[in-house]
Design a protein around this nucleic acid. Structure first.
Lengths: 220, 220
DNA sequence: GCGAGATTGTGACGGACTGTAACATGGGGA
DNA sequence: TCCCCATGTTACAGTCCGTCACAATCTCGC
């Protein structure tokens, strides 16, 4: 019911059945917010929230029984952003969700490095505002839109290994299909433009079975 | 039953009858983990956990009734590391116990050195950010993804002996199957690239019956 | 709308990496 | 000393990934 309602309101929603399914889903996908029912089959919702918190800052909204005061307290202590007591009105969920997302916007985006205008690494200058990449000689390397977006996604988090699923979400906003070589092809084209030796890349390395990682050293 | 099972698995276990006995025992002995039944004669398990927490950081695993949701929440709030609902399988207890012990290891042992970016040993430079290994001459030794991950896992803790189970968990995130020679093969390939004399390895030594240990001398 | 050129997705091919199994080697206990 | 079993070593096959060509799609000026 909740899933359908939020989809009608224009949100992209994925519902999962239990904690295990959620862990698997989050391994490959970036989400903007998590709505978490504390009463789950098999696993404890608070434990799940803790697990999420140990990995990321993604907003969590908890659904609790009306009288679970302790749940709420512990939940907020763990780092949940809001809770709603059951039974709830769909419109109330939507309103609170908007609030949480709005509140979260500044902290995550102005979270420094994350949303800066210019990234520098090993002589390169990646200018998000002008959408251009300069070499150490000040020469522009002309990148296509797709190549640029891919480089930005990777360079924002040096050392973090991205799965193809996540890269697809970040650069195309859609999910990866089976046997989809889109990401690989784009990486190959990007490498051809920015790597000295394409056979031994220094900026974007492959992690077999997982995806890719940006290995350029950022200059602060 | 639980005591006997864990002893058979090679653990040193002491079972005590109640809270008073536990307090006395802990006054004289250092333990690695406490398994605590929340339903105790005479004393409240949560109070005991609180008492332990006020004195030490030793991991606590709680055994609770299936529906004691509040107990679990308060337990986690107090600082318990995990809980298992009764009735439980002995093997599940063992698995969780291993996980808790492993998770607890880093914070106590390697106060952060854990997350350093560059490891140096005997002239070698292992750069986690760039995912590359350099010899004392500054030449890169090209490692595959699997070889690199394996070396990182070992080199993060020189002198610590890793079982194959733990190495599989660290490098592949999965559990070891019976007759699984994956780790051995990977170690062999890694040695071929980094050991001067593969017959007499100086950096990664085998520990018969256990696993492998990194014996390179770290330079701080 | 239309069309040329740029960009990107798709599938095929081949090389690289790795799990698996088979065989070789060697250490330790009976 | 001999035997058992853990480990070293290697070959091979399955899978993953780099690369390329080509078609589909997009962009932009008209």
């Amino acid at each position: 019911m909740l899933t359908r309602y939020l989809e009608e309101q224009g949100y992209r929603v994925t519902g999962v059945a239990d904690g295990q399914a959620m862990r698997e889903f989050l391994r490959d996908t970036v989400v903007d917010i998590i709505l978490l029912d504390l009463v789950l089959p098999g696993e404890d919702g608070l434990g799940l929230a803790r697990w999420v918190r140990s990995l990321s800052d993604v907003p969590i909204m908890m659904l609790t029984g009306r009288d679970d005061v302790i749940d709420r307290i512990v939940g907020l202590e763990i780092g949940a952003d809001d809770y709603i007591a059951k039974p709830f009105h769909l419109r109330e969920v939507l309103a609170r969700l908007k609030t949480v997302l709005r509140r979260r916007q500044p902290p995550t985006s102005s979270n420094r490095a994350e949303d800066r205008d210019v990234f520098r690494f090993e002589g390169w200058v990646l200018d998000l505002g002008r959408r251009q990449l300069l070499t150490s000689d000040g020469l522009e390397v002309v990148l296509t839109t797709g190549e640029f977006d891919m480089l930005v996604a990777l360079a924002k988090h040096p050392g973090r290994v991205f799965s193809r699923e996540v890269l697809m979400d970040l650069t195309h906003g859609r999910t990866l299909e089976a046997f989809d070589r889109t990401i690989d092809a784009q990486i190959a084209r990007l490498r051809k433009k920015i790597e000295q030796d394409v056979k031994r890349p220094m900026l974007i390395k492959s992690v077999r079975g997982i995806g890719y990682v940006f290995t350029g050293k950022p200059i602060i």
